[in-house]
């Protein structure tokens, strides 16, 4: 570390701010799914880049922590790289790309494929924390609806989906009910990841910087995706396996390869994919490449 960085407090935020955010986090953990307002600070990155998640991480991180940052499941995309570099610089913490080695995982859009364990903390970057926002524009009204547990409107949205598309077409930010009480927006994660939130061993924290809200799902808490009795909740299913590691039953990204209709499906969780390849798993595309090389 160079001397000029000594002007920064550990993990960028000053101690009073961290204290304030920790109080909000504690309250959020005490009331699972409830959105706690907090005095969000300006961060050295634009809104939409994870200012909420960064503030949560900055408030809970200690010198002994090992940080992993993912963006759409990948460790090597711009958002992940810049946030990881940020904490290396201002907190001088160890970083990793391996899910199992991390104590804090900050994420945008995905929950790692590998099951999280006790003691790990998953920090979500949340753009719009209010699940009812696009149904009811008034903040005063949505707060009242949460307070009085009036969630019929959420089902009106799902009803509309079925009436128009024949099924519930919402694929991400799929609303969940936490601990039988609050309806929560799990941030724009694909609904594929919703079941992973249910009874998770890890603590899940959600930070929305622009909207100034923090909410949480404590470990071993019920997280139930909303649905109808005759149209139950379903996760996405993929016909293909990962082209690189052959993984099945994981969330896949579609990558367009050329302008002749060539495409591949590959694990969205890069760490999971690399780990599998290290252990000798080979997907269809990698196998053909090897044959060609030999």
């Amino acid at each position: 570390m160079t001397a000029d960085l000594a002007t920064y407090n550990f993990a960028y935020l000053d101690e009073q701010t961290k204290r304030m955010i920790r109080r909000a986090i504690l309250k959020a953990i005490a009331i699972p799914g409830y959105q706690v307002p907090f005095a969000s600070r300006e961060m050295p990155m634009p809104y939409g880049w994870g200012t909420g998640g960064v503030q949560v991480t900055a408030s809970i991180i200690g010198p002994e922590d090992v940080l992993k940052v993912i963006d759409q499941g990948a460790d090597d995309t711009t958002n992940a790289v810049s946030i990881r570099a940020f904490f290396q610089k201002v907190a001088d913490v160890a970083v990793t790309t391996h899910t199992k080695d991390a104590t804090i995982i900050q994420t945008r859009h995905r929950i790692p494929e590998q099951k999280l364990t006790e003691g790990q903390i998953l920090v979500y970057q949340v753009p719009i924390p209010e699940p009812l926002r696009f149904l009811e524009p008034r903040e005063t009204e949505t707060r009242k609806m949460h307070a009085l547990e009036e969630y019929g409107l959420m089902h009106v949205k799902l009803y509309e989906d079925i009436a128009i598309n024949g099924r519930i077409s919402k694929t991400y930010a799929y609303p969940v009910k936490v601990d039988g009480r609050y309806v929560m927006d799990p941030s724009p994660t694909p609904k594929f990841d919703n079941p992973k939130m249910h009874m998770s061993d890890a603590l899940q924290l959600f930070g929305a910087g622009r909207e100034k809200r923090i909410y949480a799902v404590p470990p071993h808490t019920q997280v139930v995706s909303l649905d109808f009795e005759d149209y139950p909740f379903e996760i996405q299913k993929f016909e293909q396996d990962c082209a690189l590691c052959g993984a099945h039953g994981v969330y896949l990204d579609e990558v367009v390869l050329d302008d002749k209709g060539g495409r591949m499906f590959v694990c969205s969780d890069t760490d999971h994919c690399e780990d599998r390849r290290e252990h000798g798993h080979v997907g269809a595309m990698l196998a053909t490449d090897r044959e060609a090389a030999e």
Partner: peptide, 12 residues
């Protein structure tokens, strides 16, 4: 249907 869903009907 909104009122029905508001009082807890969950069968489309």
């Amino acid at each position: 249907g909104e009122r029905l869903m508001a009082v807890g009907d969950r069968h489309y």
